[in-house]
Design a protein around this nucleic acid. Structure first.
Lengths: 349, 349
DNA sequence: ACGAGGTATGTAATCGTTTACAAGATCCAA
DNA sequence: TTGGATCTTGTAAACGATTACATACCTCGT
């Protein structure tokens, strides 16, 4: 690697240039008030002259903290996460922390580099948005009280008991289904996410129970397996079209699937909501601007981010022993159904 | 902070448990082949038993490299960036690097924490997707040969001479406008991005020149100022509606604006492309699934990410002196127009 | 004039690794 | 048996900051 003699100026160079000790330089930087005015000026001038930037690695090593947290996102391509990240960034940067985002998808690193994230010296804490991480990696890594505290948001892993911020996915889908029933639908299907995903499971079950409660059938051939993406929504549209006996309404595990579904139907000349009602989940920015505007379950995404950040902050400030022994807080944020244009009474047929 | 006696096991603990020196442990980890089989096993066992995780801060300090790069994104909420990030992550993790993403929006850090990113000890390199960063912060920070190499992608800053990966925005908008002209449009408007953004400028000018070349007017009241977002597209729709003398086609500086524009018109009962043609820019995932499917300028986003990553890798491997003295490479990737359903001949009126 | 109390600075240990160098062991050819 | 190679391991010096502690210098009341 391009190693040659040149080195970035260190605190020593600054000290020398300012005619003081390194301790004084350090103090000037971290606590300007304790040094005399003359010294302070000399040090700042020396910093400017030398072009000094603190060596973060050295500081982190010595202080045993980094001033940064990491967010592990399953898929940055999913616009769902962006607002959550905003919420996190907002609270965290106010608290003086840097926020580093990592996509867990390309993590072939998994076994190698991954554990280092938990080592309390790359970051001071972790917010995990990915419920599919290897749980052994998360657990079997030495005493938890010496590891960086972590909290789950949105998704979680049942076997890993950590603080969690979620919405009531179960309840949400109950509300969604009830909305469709209120519109007069009796034949209700579901576009689900990947079957091994926690959210998929809860969303599926929530709807199923609501159907049961209302004496409606939960038909196997009316639940379609997708993966939260636009593309899978479009694919399911074709499955739906191919059926002779179809639901008149579907509720989806994500807005993207709902939109992919609608777009593909549109292309095939089937109008939403005239011929079939579609109900989304997430309330992405675009949902309101889609054609037709999407009826969907609104998740308070910024609030989720903020809550997760605040919870992490709190965990980072509690004694590790207590953190391990104490209860595991869980906060559940309220969702709301926002009715727009993609749902309507079933075709009178 | 929750500091108590407990400490994560260090390499010393492992060495003791395995009955070897710390040097041997270190070697076992970084280069297993040089130690004898017995030792290797003992060390690995000790690592397992103690739950040891390497202290990244200490390693970074000593090795003077971090094995990570940072990507500075202006706004993660913008789905445009996601595929670029995938491209970057792909080649970077293959090269053994971690990718850390930071949103520059909430960077009140700006003056304080920000420069540390350039200090070659938080990351080994930088990919900057934000052309609005403070250029003084980027430049006036000591000798460039001791700072982390950086490359721009998508956006850039003229005053900061660094390698760049872009598309020909100017040309792209020429093609866009020509497409509209070919369809028969003579009254062509533009939804632009923030006026101080590099991309906005180039996209605007490219279209204007094509209009000139074809003897068509570039009317001030037909260029609308937005900020790349859905919301601004919707706002502009209302401006358009309020005009008595309107363009019959608009080309937009982003897909989001195009979609916001279309959705708002739709809500007001104006159909696209029947009454007005709309041409986007970016070719987001959703563009194809929008109703109507968006005609738009396709940016090879994954390729952009890959190219930027490869370029950074190359810069990180060239001698710092040479890097500073040598030429500044620029790669321009080809764009294509993808014709879908949001453009059509003007209303016959 | 003296000591207490306060302020400003310096000295030096420390954080947990990596690695140049030295040294001990083993092996084999002469 | 001896003298290199070759392998394996240990010793100890970095890396560049922070901070507990010591020290020197003032100020001021008595």
């Amino acid at each position: 690697m391009g190693e040659n003699g040149a080195r970035a100026p260190s605190i020593r160079d600054v000290a020398q240039a300012a005619g003081v000790s390194t301790a004084t330089v350090s103090r000037t930087l971290s606590n300007p008030d304790v040094v005399s005015e003359g010294t302070r000026e000399a040090v700042f001038r020396a910093i400017r002259d030398t072009g000094y930037i603190v060596n973060v690695a050295a500081r982190n090593l010595r202080k045993r903290e980094t001033g940064a947290i990491a967010v592990l996102v399953p898929n940055i391509a999913n616009p769902f996460f962006s607002r959550i990240l905003s919420g996190i960034a907002e609270v965290m940067s106010e608290a003086g922390y840097n926020v580093l985002i990592t996509d867990t998808t390309p993590m072939s690193l998994d076994d190698h580099r991954f554990p280092e994230y938990f080592s309390h010296n790359l970051t001071d804490g972790l917010i995990i948005l990915d419920g599919m991480l290897n749980k052994d990696l998360l657990l079997n890594r030495g005493a938890p009280e010496v590891r960086a505290p972590m909290v789950f948001a949105c998704e979680w892993i049942d076997e890993v008991p950590r603080p969690t911020v979620t919405v009531d996915n179960h309840e949400a889908c109950g509300i969604a289904v009830r909305h469709l029933i209120d519109l007069g639908h009796r034949r209700i299907g579901h576009l689900g996410g990947p079957p091994d995903n926690v959210l998929s499971k809860h969303r599926m079950r929530g709807g199923r129970e609501a159907l049961h409660t209302n004496g409606l059938p939960h038909r196997r051939d009316w639940v379609y397996e997708g993966d939260f993406t636009l593309r899978s929504g479009a694919k399911i549209a074709n499955q739906w079209l191919a059926q002779s006996d179809r639901p008149t309404a579907v509720y989806c595990a994500s807005d993207e699937m709902a939109m992919g579904f609608i777009a593909e139907l549109n292309r095939k000349g089937v109008r939403v909501p005239d011929e079939v009602s579609v109900l989304g989940f997430d309330d992405l920015e675009i949902a309101e601007h889609f054609v037709p505007p999407l009826t969907t379950v609104h998740q308070p995404r910024v609030a989720i981010g903020r809550a997760a950040a605040r919870m992490l902050l709190e965990r980072m400030n509690t004694d590790p022993r207590e953190r391990v022994l104490g209860p595991v807080p869980r906060v559940v944020l309220p969702i709301t159904l926002v009715e727009r244009g993609s749902t309507a009474p079933p075709p009178s047929s």
